[in-house]
């Protein structure tokens, strides 16, 4: 349990954590590229994506803290929780590997994210709707870019094609988790705060299907889905290492202001 018993709205709190932890963890992963991308233009573009995601994290985790009502700030939530309290999808914590893998992960996430945020713009919770309206503009641009790169590399040289197909095969089992509902999803859906995650699947499949077709990549036929990220029950081993890096200063020097 992340939220203390006193939290007035545990489902909304959890939902905000899920949104904010996705952007926090993926923003962190993307920022790991800074200074190491294949061309300067890509370095700049990756930094832009990471900056947008960090900005969205501040909003989602800020709202989570507000909903929780225990005085925790976005930074407290980002830097002072351990892995089991993180609620991000497993997909976004997977390591960067090569540039193609990073961009394919981004494209898969962006396609889900865009469907989700589009639906959230009509949320019954005004603060959720407000954040989503801002974020959806950024994310539609993210998807444009990541899709272009996936298409370019998929339909590039034999080597780039093979690398992208390999990335897709590795990442595909981490896609399904985003669409599997649990009790929290059911509650926020019933209250009109967020869509039923399963309802986003058709839109996602259509988007990704079109991108992969143009990229000449073939969709793995298994729909097996690793789970445990958004519930926090079983993250991958990668998350703990990421947090050890990300949270180092806050943990080593508690109470300092930066």
């Amino acid at each position: 349990m992340t939220a203390p018993a006193a939290c007035p709205d545990p489902a909304l709190f959890e939902f905000c954590l899920r949104m904010g932890d996705n952007t926090l963890v993926l923003g962190h992963r993307v920022s790991e590229w800074c200074g190491h991308a294949p061309v300067i233009e890509e370095d700049i573009a990756l930094a832009n994506t990471a900056l947008d995601l960090i900005g969205q994290t501040q909003l989602w985790l800020g709202l989570a803290g507000e909903v929780e009502g225990a005085g925790r700030s976005a930074d407290d939530l980002a830097f002072l929780r351990d892995a089991w309290d993180f609620r991000n999808l497993l997909l976004v914590e997977r390591p960067n590997r090569d540039f193609g893998h990073t961009l394919l992960r981004q494209c898969l996430f962006d396609a889900w994210h865009l469907e989700m945020l589009t639906a959230l713009c009509g949320s019954s919770e005004p603060r959720v709707s407000e954040i989503s309206q801002k974020a959806v503009k950024e994310v539609s641009y993210h998807l444009e870019r990541s899709a272009d790169t996936v298409i370019g590399l998929g339909d590039g040289t034999p080597e780039s094609h093979a690398r992208m197909q390999d990335a897709l095969d590795r990442l595909w089992p981490y896609v399904g988790e985003a669409f599997l509902p649990d009790a929290i999803d059911a509650e926020v859906a019933a209250r009109g705060i967020a869509p039923d995650p399963a309802s986003l699947r058709a839109g996602f499949d259509a988007r990704i299907g079109a991108i992969l077709a143009e990229a000449t990549l073939s969709l793995p036929d298994s729909r097996f889905a690793h789970q445990g990220g958004k519930t926090g029950v079983r993250h991958t081993e990668d998350l703990g290492h990421m947090l050890a890096t990300m949270q180092f200063l806050q943990r080593a020097y508690p109470g300092a202001t930066w």
């Binding site: 890509e42 193609g100 370019g152 590039g156 080597e159 780039s160």
Partner: peptide, 9 residues
């Protein structure tokens, strides 16, 4: 490989 792939595309 990325630069080559994007050029080829």
């Amino acid at each position: 490989w990325v630069r080559d792939g994007l050029m080829a595309h």
